[in-house]
Structures are given as C-alpha cells and as structure tokens.
Design a protein around this nucleic acid. Sequence first.
DNA 1: CAATCTCTGTACGCTATCGCACATAGGCCG
DNA 2: CGGCCTATGTGCGATAGCGTACAGAGATTG
Lengths: 239, 239
Amino acid sequence: MLEPHDFKQNALLGLLPKEDLVHLWPHLERVTLTLGQSLSESGRQMSHVYFPLDSIVSLLCVMENGASTEIAVVGYEGVVGVSLFMGGETTPSRAIVQSAGDAYRLKGQLLKNEFYRAGAMQRLLLRYTQALITQMAQTAVCNRHHSVDQQLCRWLLLSLDRLPGNELVMTQELIANMLGVRREGVTESAGKLQKAGLISYNRGHITVLDRPGLEARVCECYSVVKREYDRLLNHHDVM
Amino acid sequence: MLEPHDFKQNALLGLLPKEDLVHLWPHLERVTLTLGQSLSESGRQMSHVYFPLDSIVSLLCVMENGASTEIAVVGYEGVVGVSLFMGGETTPSRAIVQSAGDAYRLKGQLLKNEFYRAGAMQRLLLRYTQALITQMAQTAVCNRHHSVDQQLCRWLLLSLDRLPGNELVMTQELIANMLGVRREGVTESAGKLQKAGLISYNRGHITVLDRPGLEARVCECYSVVKREYDRLLNHHDVM
DNA sequence: CAATCTCTGTACGCTATCGCACATAGGCCG
DNA sequence: CGGCCTATGTGCGATAGCGTACAGAGATTG
C-alpha cells in the first residue's frame, strides 16, 4: 500500500534510494501551481517535469472543436511529463492544474540524465508510467460504459486521494470539462450526491462528508486503478 | 513516415540496428496466432512478448460484468507485452488476437535482458510505448465524444493499416465487443457505409472498397494517432 | 448600493444508443 | 435433403445525455 499521505513529500521521490535522491535534490525547485495553469501544451516540449505535492494535475485530451476529456490525474503519487523520458519529448495531450498547490520541478534534461543512468529512478518512473497507462485504459472503458453519476464519484475519489483534506476547490463547470460531459449533467449528479448527504457544495467548494458512501456508489474503475497504483508503487517492490 | 508495409517483417524489429537484432534473432520464434486467441489475461504474467507480422492484436479492458472496450490495437508496427519491460509484469487488460496471422515471439526474460542493456532496443520500446499511450488517450476521448459511425470508421482504418490486403475477417459481433457498443449498432453503422459504397461485407468478411471515403468520414482521432505513431517511430529519430 | 459576473438550478425537446425480441439468410453437417 | 448454428437485419419502447434557454442566488466591483 502507499504509505499514509505525507504531503510535504512526493511519493515517487520518496521511493527513491537516498543515494539517488541526493543527485537530484539540489536541482529540485519548489514551485506553486495555480488553478488552471498549463504545465504542458499539445505538441510543445516541456522544459521541466513536475512532482506534485499537495497539487493535482489533470492530463486532458483536447479535440479540435475544443471538447476535452481527462485521461488521467496526477498528484503527490506521480510526475507530470513522462513523455520526456519516454523519448517522444512531446505529447498531444495537455496538463492543467486542477487543484492549486505546490510541486517540485526539475529541468527536463536533468531528469533524462538521471533516467538514462538506468538505475532505481528509471525503474521507478517506468513503473509509474505503467500505472498511468492503467488509469488511462480504465478511463476509456469508464467513458464508454458508466453513467455520469458513477464517473463523478470516481473523479471525486481520485481527487480526494490526492488532497490533504476533504474539500475540493472546483466548480461544476470545470468538473464537466474534465469528465467531458455537460455542466448541467454534473449539476444533476452532484445534486443527487448532496441530497444523499455524501457531499456538500457551494460555489466552487465541494466538501466530501461521507467517503464510504461515495465508495459504495462508484464503479469498479476506481478500485481497479487504485489497486494497480498500490501494486506498482509499493515500496518493497521498487528496488 | 513508416515505410511501406513489409509484412514479412515487424517494423519495430526493423528499426533496430543490425548489431542489436543479431542478439535477438536466434531467440525469435515464429508463431501463428489464431482468431480469438488470448495472449495475455488480466493480472497474469506473460511468458513471451509478441511482435505481430500480418496479425493484429487488440488490447481490451474487460469489466467485471463482462463488458469490454478496446483500448488499443497492435500490429506489425508494435509489440504486445509492454508491461514486461515497464516493470509491472502484468496488466489488468487482456490481449486478444483480432486478426489471425503470424508473429515473432520472444521469451519475456530475454526481452527484459535486452531492454536493460539500455541501448537502442530500450529507446525504441519506450517510444513505442508512448505511441501506445497516445492511442489509448485518443480512444478515451473518442469513446466520449464521437458517434458509433465515426468510431467504426476509425476502427476499420486502424485495422486496415495493419493488414496486407483490404479485407478484414471479422464479424459485426466482434467489432461491437471491441468498440464496446451493441452489435445492432455496428450493423446499422456498417449498413450506412455499405450503402455509401465504402465497404462491402458478408458473414464475417469486410472488404474496404473506398478508403478515401472512410478517411473522409472518420473523426480526427484516427489521424492524431497515426501522426503520433509516424512521429515517434520514424526511422531517422530512433537511433 | 448598484451593476455585473459567476455559479448553480431547472425545464424541454431532441437524438443516439440501449435492451430486447424476433425475423431472415447463409453455411455447415449429419 | 433437413436441421442447426451463426451472422445479419429490423423494429420498438426506454433512457441517458445533449443543446439550449433562462432564472435565481451569491460574489465582486465600481
């Protein structure tokens, strides 16, 4: 299992052996990410990779007409910018800050240097990338087969897992963009959850009141992804 | 651009420098894959990776109730089994032969050994994996925003790109499983394409008559994926 | 305090897709 | 030839989500 959240720390960095971390530590720069900030535009090379701490970043696939869908979410457990070490340098997707907070960032070239030393960092980043792949696959199937109600639960839980508290700063409009559905659809689903006493929200602030209740309503996609993250990023297996 | 199809060869292997290929060549075993054969079950470790030649393999995300969606397709341009070198060993998805044909297979351990030599093979496989990621992301957004008509066109073109001829051996029922829609939905969409003279089909055999016509109807998802494959697996960039 | 903007709630008709039922037809096999 | 299985065609009511329009309530700004 992932250890209980330590939001002073990024879990991926935390899994590195100390001797690897000391290489990187002097180059890690702490930055504050603001809501809506773009870390990566379609087809543009990223100058840095980002290791979120208490911030959350959404990876979005945006189409020509502007419609979008979130394909994965990255928080303290991961890193934004896998295309740098995967060798493509760019991706067609965008990375948008979904919840403001801090992150460590690292110059892309330095990450690549560390990656190509073919040590613990490489193995760790590849495992993380596989977890990301699982999340994307499950998102695809969820988009196909599950209701907006269920997807909203999944989205709330995925976000909650990456936040220190139980409050999300997020309008229904933005959630709708992430899920790739209408804002009204989110209003309706969120209304159901509020009536059921699972959440309460108010003008861009959502508070989760009953997490087990959400877990009871969510589709299997949530637990499939969570299990795979736990399996792949379990401390004991990485070294 | 990918070179014109040489279906005696897997493009990924073809991009390897000769000195790397000679390591592997003695261990590559040519096998015939039959329609419906499973190369990888959810959570089970694969003994081999497969480099398709004229066969096509679908990566499916299957849910508890049996419903499924194809998240990516692999043909002569790729390899089945990226989870082996990514370090997770297993994945929650399944790999099913969608079009019978031949492939080279290689023992998983041998691939891993080659991968961890951190040479051309590693760089190539990582680039391929990134292309696969793009395909999965685009599938997710396509599932969300596009009609069955458009998705069928996308699916036909993706398959066609990986086949030597213009005929697919594939029932509407199977296509429906891949797309994660009803069989009747595929019947209806395929009927439209046949009426328009773009394809002709008969009991499990689909012949594409007018490929430009399909390209005119398909959503942007097809070309986004194709462009990214071309970019990432361009011979000139790999070394 | 007034004007404006943002966020949320609600309604209504429309369409795509679903789920189901059943019909037809080609191919295979005894 | 007759029976059976598989693949495809079709019809129909149900429904989830869409697009649009608009209203009200809270926040912000001048």
